[in-house]
Nucleic acid binder design. Sequence first.
DNA 1: TACTTAATTTCGGAG
DNA 2: CTCCGAAGTTAAGTA
Lengths: 217, 217
Amino acid sequence: MRLVVARCSVDYSGRLDAHLPLATRLLIVKSDGSLSIHSESGFKPLNWMSPPCVLSEAPGVWRVTNKGGEQLVISLEEVLHDTSHELGIDPGLVKDGVEAHLQVLLAERCHVLGEDMALVRREYPTDIGPVDLLCRDAEGYVAVEIKRRGEIDGVEQLTRYLSRLALDPDVQPVRGILAAQQIAPQAKVLAQARGIGVCVLDYDELRGLEGTTPTLF
Amino acid sequence: MRLVVARCSVDYSGRLDAHLPLATRLLIVKSDGSLSIHSESGFKPLNWMSPPCVLSEAPGVWRVTNKGGEQLVISLEEVLHDTSHELGIDPGLVKDGVEAHLQVLLAERCHVLGEDMALVRREYPTDIGPVDLLCRDAEGYVAVEIKRRGEIDGVEQLTRYLSRLALDPDVQPVRGILAAQQIAPQAKVLAQARGIGVCVLDYDELRGLEGTTPTLF
DNA sequence: TACTTAATTTCGGAG
DNA sequence: CTCCGAAGTTAAGTA
C-alpha cells in the first residue's frame, strides 16, 4: 500500500463524469490495483477506481484505467508525502447482527409475533423467491418479511409474496407481517392500508437478553 | 489528517457487532473526527466511525465513541508508521451525468420516448410527490419515471404515481413509462404486467452526441 | 430535525 | 456470468 499526500486535481470519466479542483489530498494506492482519493473529512473517498485497474505514472500526471473503460486522470502539482507499506492479507471482518441473524433468532422465538405463533419453516419458497419465515397460528398462515429497517420496499416485497401465496393451496388462509427493528412511518401506513401487520423487533429480546444488564465499557 | 500503520485488532459495537482479528492495517484519523481502518485491498474501509466522534488514546488502546452509543476499540500491537498532514478544506466533487441530469436531458428530447411525445412539465406534482416528467402524445398523458437503472422499485414508484394521477381530472387518460439507462429483467416483467412501458435511454443520444466519435485519451 | 430518494452505490450470494 | 437483495448502507435534498 502506497500513501501519497499531494496537491492535485482529478478528472474521472466512466459511469459518469466528475472533477475535483486543485487541492491537497491523500491518495491511497493498494496492491489490488485500487486507488482512492481522500479529503480531510468523511470516511468515504472523494473519488476512486475499483480494482482491477492499472496506474500509469508520468511526471505530474497519473492515469488510472480499468477494463470497463473508466478513467481517472490525476494532475499532481506538488507531492508532500510518499511512503509504501506492506500490510499483508487481512483476515477480514466478522459481523454479527445483520438481517440473516435476525431471521435465525426470530425463527427460534416467533412467539414474539403473537402468543400462539408457531414456525412452519424458514425461507418458504414461492416462484418469485423465498419468504423469510412462514408461521401459523389459530387464524391461519402468516408470511413474515424480516428487515433491519422496515420501509416501503419491505411492504411491497411482502405484498408480492402474499399475492403468490394466495395461489398456494397448502397455505390457506395466509396473511402477512413485516417484522423489523425500526419501521418507517410511510411503511406503517402502507402496511395498514394493505392489511399487513407490523412488528417491531427488540434485538436483546430476540437474543433472550431481555432484562439483563447491557455490557458497559 | 493522521496516518497510522499498525498491527491491530478491532472491536466495533453499535448498529451491529463486528470484530477484526490481529493484522497490519492503515488507520486514517481525519480532522472532522472520523476514523477509518483500511486493509491492503478494496477501496472501502474494513471498519470505521462516522463523524463526529471522539478518539481517546491510551498506550496500546484507542477507543473511539460517538453520540449514538457506537464504540470502536482498537488494540495496537505495533505502530509501524505515524504521520500527520494538513490538507485544508476541499472544494468537493463536481458530478455530471446523474439522475437529475438525465431528467434535464430527457425533458429536452422527450421525443425519444415516442415520435409525437411532447413535454407538459418536469416534476409534475402529486400528493405523494412529484412525477419526474409529465408528457403527452396523441393517446393522452404519459407519466415518466427516470432512473439510471430501472429496477422493481422504480416500477412500484411509478405505479404509486399513476394511482394518484388516475384521480387527477387534468391529466386523463394517463399511462406510464419507466425510462432508464439499464432496465433489470424483473423490472421489465413487472412493468409489462402493469401496462407500464419501458424505454432504455442512451446517454450519448440524450446529449445529442449520437454518431460522434468518443473522446480518446 | 425527520423523512425520502439517489448512489460511479458496494457487496455478497444464488442460479 | 447475470441477477437480486442487503448494507453499521452513506449522502443529499426537502419539508
